[in-house]
Nucleic acid binder design. Structure first.
Length: 117
RNA sequence: GGGGGUCGGUCGGCGGUCGCCAGAGGUCUAAGAAACCUCUGGAGGAAAGUCCGGGCUCCACAGGGCAGGGCGCCGGGUAACUCCCGGAGGGGGUAACCCCUGGAAAGUGCCACAGAAAAGAGACCGCCCUGGGCCCCUGGGCCUAGGGUAAGGGUGAAACGGUGGGGUAAGAGCCCACCGCUCCCUCCCGCAAGGGAGGGAGGCACGGCAAACCCCGCCUGGAGAAAGGCCGCAUAGGGGGGCGCUGGAGGGUGGCCCGCCCGAAGCCCCCGGGUAGGCCGCUAGAGCAGCCGGGUAACCGGCUGCCUAGAGGAAUGACCGCCACCCAGGGGAUCGCAAGGUCUCUUGGGCACAGAACCCGGCUUAUGACCGGCCCUCUCCU
RNA sequence: CGGGGCGUAGCGCAGCCUGGCAGCGCACCUGCCUUGGGAGCAGGGGGUCGGCGGUUCAAAUCCGCCCGCCCCGA
């Protein structure tokens, strides 16, 4: 598999996958983004989106998903392995760039893992 | 040159790094899947809102009536339309041009406030006549009762033709002339809505609102791609209730009735329980481009060429560089008396609205900028 | 994909169907009462009727289009 690729196998596409993450997952909050993640039993990280219509029109929602997908694709190493992630963004995400989001997420995951260990 | 009207077109280009979706081919493999490689294709004029109209699919056929809903000058276009084109009448604008459209002499209803009166008119003030009383006194004034009067005043969005004359106690289409209006007839033009001309009748009746009920005419069965079809899995069987067992329960998707069809022994409802995975539908079509022909036009016909996203928790992207385009500031060159124009360099900023979810035709709404055609108007020069 | 509801004063709501006055409660302001406050009493101010058009003499109300919020069904 390509290191910086993002194929369909790396995405969540079933209602029951989403429901499992929401039910069993941990929360990670940024001012502009909430990530819920839970361990899965496959050998890779998978992502999914829950973007409310309140965030914006279809163009804005699509842009947010693309930015977050790009962030994940370029910086998979900062995410915990063997987990499913659901991103719940706020509208401010549309104004950010992938490196900024990656920096904030890396910091947050760092703090989270050091706090739990 | 300025302002305006109208019709149409375009959505930036090139390159780089890392990626996404679909299809085809290949590598690998016993085969398939996965993975990887190559090639090709990959958002819009509104893809939007979901406001109309169709196609398609299912409901036996999509049949009749009622209810409900929609539309409304005339003719044409179309698969169809509430859309489009052409015309008619009315209104607005100097004009190009734009906007509006059945019936109020079938009925019902409403027209607040103000005003005397608001719709088969109406007497508040005023004007006039008559009776009575009082006052100055051959005439009038004031008060009062009855009557006449729609010319004048004032109210209102709206007050039941206008001007002039006759007439009268005062007035009034009461009568007359002209203008306006209504109805009828004939002729001409037009498919028609309607227009024009001529003649006749009528003193004039018919206020407004149907985006109030309504009347008239026309259209309209229902649901929607989670339509629908195939495969797989499941439909175990627990509890309660109802109606039937042979001219018949019940069912066949929309409100009712009829009709029609299925249904001969079971069927229906509620609680509880189970399922919600894959494939097809899914993109070649009222298709797009060019040319020719018909038509004032919308549009139609013929020929040739082309294949142009099709998928899900959702692809068409992220970040750079260069060049275009627009705006603002500064520098230079040049034309000009000047305002300013043209070219060039540079700095900064801008480059909208918006993302296919079965497919088309429209409507509506959101939008930065550029390009082009035609037309109107004002100003200047020759 | 289909359907429904709401938007009126700072807040919560009537009025809309059947068109002419925009109203109610709480809150706010002023005065009285009280040593002061609260309560009470009396008086008062405040609304582009979500926006833009249209019909009408007249629109919160009727008819279009748009905006925002909320809720259903498959």
């Amino acid at each position: 598999m390509k290191r910086e690729g993002l194929s369909r196998a790396e995405r969540l596409s079933r209602k029951r996958d989403f429901e499992r993450v929401f039910r069993e997952g941990q929360r990670l909050d940024l001012p502009y983004l909430r990530v819920i993640y839970a361990p899965n039993n496959c050998d890779r990280r998978r992502i999914g989106f829950a973007v409310s219509k309140k965030v914006g029109k279809a163009v804005v929602r699509n842009r947010i998903k693309r930015l977050l997908r790009e962030t994940f694709r370029r910086h998979k190493e900062i995410f915990p392995p063997h987990c499913d992630f659901v991103f719940i963004p706020r509208r401010e995400v549309a104004q950010l760039s992938p490196p900024e989001i990656a920096r904030d997420l890396a910091e947050a995951f760092q703090k989270c893992s050091s706090g739990s260990s």
